[in-house]
Design a protein around this nucleic acid. Sequence first.
DNA 1: CCAAAAGTGTTATGCTTACACCCATGC
DNA 2: GCATGGGTGTAAGCATAACACTTTTGG
Lengths: 228, 228
Amino acid sequence: MSTPAEAAPVAAPLVAVDVAVFTVIDRRLAVLVVEVRHGPFAGWWALPGGRVGPAESLDDAAARELREQTGVGDIYLEQLYTFGSPERDPQGHVVSVAYVALIDHAGRFAEPGRAGSKYGGVAWRPVTALPALAYDHAAVVRTAVARLRSKLEYTNLVYTLLGRSFTLGELQEKYEAVLGRRLDRRNFRKKMLATGLLRGLGRVRRGPHRPAALYTFRRRRPMVISIL
Amino acid sequence: MSTPAEAAPVAAPLVAVDVAVFTVIDRRLAVLVVEVRHGPFAGWWALPGGRVGPAESLDDAAARELREQTGVGDIYLEQLYTFGSPERDPQGHVVSVAYVALIDHAGRFAEPGRAGSKYGGVAWRPVTALPALAYDHAAVVRTAVARLRSKLEYTNLVYTLLGRSFTLGELQEKYEAVLGRRLDRRNFRKKMLATGLLRGLGRVRRGPHRPAALYTFRRRRPMVISIL
DNA sequence: CCAAAAGTGTTATGCTTACACCCATGC
DNA sequence: GCATGGGTGTAAGCATAACACTTTTGG
């Protein structure tokens, strides 16, 4: 939400942050949206966000707004792009620094429902079936998805979408959801194992079908390393 | 320059733009710096920049500040990153949207000299021998160089560093200056010609040595296409 | 026993890299 | 004639992409 509190018609631009949080639900890439409570966009969906405080860094502001509006914390956040068209907010000139975040949703906001109580509805929406978004947030999501697709191919960022242990099938599922295309299973395994990023746990996940070996990431922090 | 005019000790952050303009001079990557006139950094060098106007877009502000302070216009500009640490400007919280620009210098500011008269000194400085820069502008330049190096490898952006006609040797020289390493001449020619981006002019540049065939870019606008 | 996911190797192709010699010119 | 950059091809190694069958389990 890029809602200026006191923007006069002609005033210096205000600074806000907006956060596009992504996760994979049901093999589809989904983004977290919140309900706008006030102003011309009341009732619309928007990305969580808001004004940057007087002595606050941009990264801190993004993390704070996200936590306050959705309860989501301890999450991978990366600056995306800054949107500053004077027309992007009908209430005044708000320059918004957009962030991308990634999370293993693990059942948060169990499907399209309410959660943030105090702050209006919160929901995951598949990026392929987005509702109309307030402000220029549709453009923010487009830019964010493009960034994610390209970064997944040259970093180890997938780890943010997974729990501590996972099967190679689950790993591939995350890639396919973000990239929006199917990958060859044999080639995928070969390359992932060749990166040396994974460590086999020697355990197995049981389920409805043949049990699958469990893996974990050796290091859970962002690294630049060619993967696909 | 990220100089707030009226920042109170605790106030909403102000919005500025800073521009890192690059060119290749003498086979070295150089960045355009201006002399700071006022404030705690008076006498230091800094990137050109300044406050964003009330109803001005960020792109417009970057182009305007660059033109006003250095006389440089009609240039490739791309948003880089937004720097917002509360400590980056000792005079107050200024969020600065940094831009990268590229230009064929063609003798502008003939070597370390003065030019912007009204706005203090203007000079090209090799990125390998930068003076101390005001604010966090050293970090901006580092980030910008990293971006340039990576973008040169998957776009046709070199064209911004060259005039309308050029030899393959000159083209390679620009790549080597930005990337900071030598390239194999035969492989470079093969790949560049294979991209289909170039058109031979059927003319030749005469000089102190064997004449070289002249080429031009078929299209002088930014495109994403794997090159090196 | 059936459905569904797990697991596994080989081959062809294209791309990348390394590398050396002659040519044309101005001085 | 010499110094300097222009111009050209090939071979080896590597990474990528395409492709099918067997295994294990739960239901």
